[in-house]
Every structure is written in C-alpha cells, then in structure tokens.
Amino acid sequence: MNGPAAGLELRDVVAGYGGQPILHSISFSVQPGERLVVVGPNGSGKSTLMKTVVGLLRPMSGAVRLGGADVTALGAPARAALGLAYIPQETNIFRNMTVLENLHVGYEFVAPSKGPTFSERLEAVLGLFPEIRVKLRSTAGHLSGGQRQMVAMAAALMPKPTVLALDEPSAGLSPRNAGLLFEVIGRVAASGVTMLIVEQNTQLGLGAADQGIVLVNGHVRLAAPAMTVRTDPEIRRLYLGGV
C-alpha cells in the first residue's frame, strides 16, 4: 500500500454458500489505476463476487491476486492490510459511532506505522468530501443516506488504499444523490486508485468506468471497454434488459 496503484486479478474462481456454487469459474483482471465495473441483473452473483474479492467469503476453488500476490488464503482483515479497501452495500458505516470515529476506525487498523499520519489523511480525505467536515461529531447513524455513503467512502479511503471495492454504491439513494455520488467516485478515481465497482445502475456505473463486465447467472458473459458495453445496442438488448 501507499505505493502505486496495484492490480486485482481473479482466476477461475468458484464460490458460493453451503457447497452450492453461485459463481462459476470467474476470471478477470483490473489493471493498476483502472476502473472496472461489474453489471448484471439481480441475482447474478454480484454480491457474492464482491464478498469473495474482499475475503468475507472463501472461494471453493480458483485464486484471487492482489498487486501480484496470491491472497486467496487470507481473510478480510489481512487483505485490508495489503491495501484493499471495501465499501459494502448499505450497512457500510458504524452507526453508533461518530463520523470522526468512523474515519479513525477506517485508518488505524490498516494504515502502516510509517505512512502518513491520521491527521494528514483526515485532511486529504476531507478535501475529497468537504460535505462531511461539519458532521465530524455527529453520530453516523443519524445522517442521511447520501451523507452515509460519503462517510463510508471517506472511511475506506483513510488508509490510502491501492484498490477500492464498491458494492452497489447507488443502492437506496435517490437518482439525484446517486448522480452526485458518482461524481465523487470520479474525483476519487482521478487520485489514481484502482477501482472495482459492482453496480445495478448500468448507465451510471459504466459511465464511471474504463472496463465493463456483464455477469449473468454467475458467468462472465462479456468483458469489454465500458464505452462499448454501454453503447452497443446488441449487448444491451441481450444482457441488460434491452432498455
């Protein structure tokens, strides 16, 4: 971590619950500094994919590589220490802690002792999310949905991760707030971090990405530049509900 952006790679990953695979032999890679978005209909295995990437779910077979190192055997805390930050869907903040405490927790268990200090990172992150500066002392659970997403992103960015994984960032937000959030995601991406985004809102998601993947029934149906996926009418008709 703290070094240049690292890549993320999945090779033949099979994963699921209770011995039932949901993901079937998934392979893809995200180049350092690149943004990849995974889209697909409900129930296609997007959340399972995310859990497998961040280490909350161990794959039944296959390998997960982070910055060239095999992390398949590592749990979520160890992967976080290697620079992988994850923002889960919806319940992504500590609701009974203040915003400042959320940022503190985001930083202190992952950041290396030789890297930037907490206050340096706090300033940097508040520069990206000026909206939450006035809310630092508020209980995070009392904030609005849009503000919570900001806090979640800010907390994940506190240790200066090299790879950021976002699970359905627009879920539960109004279209306007979702749009604002993706603006922020664009700002974060500009800072050079590698991004993996799982998103149901295909237009917003693909608009913010370099590469796109279409996931259907646990299989990768298509991997192409995001612009192609977004604009090709044939792909949209076949995989994305034809709208």
Binding site: P77, A80, A81, F94, R95
Partner: peptide
Amino acid sequence: DNPDLAAVRGI
C-alpha cells in the same frame, strides 16, 4: 456495531 464491516476495516 457491524462485525463484517469491522473485518474489512482490518479488525
């Protein structure tokens, strides 16, 4: 508060 989130935050 949130065991899963705590895990991905390195705890």
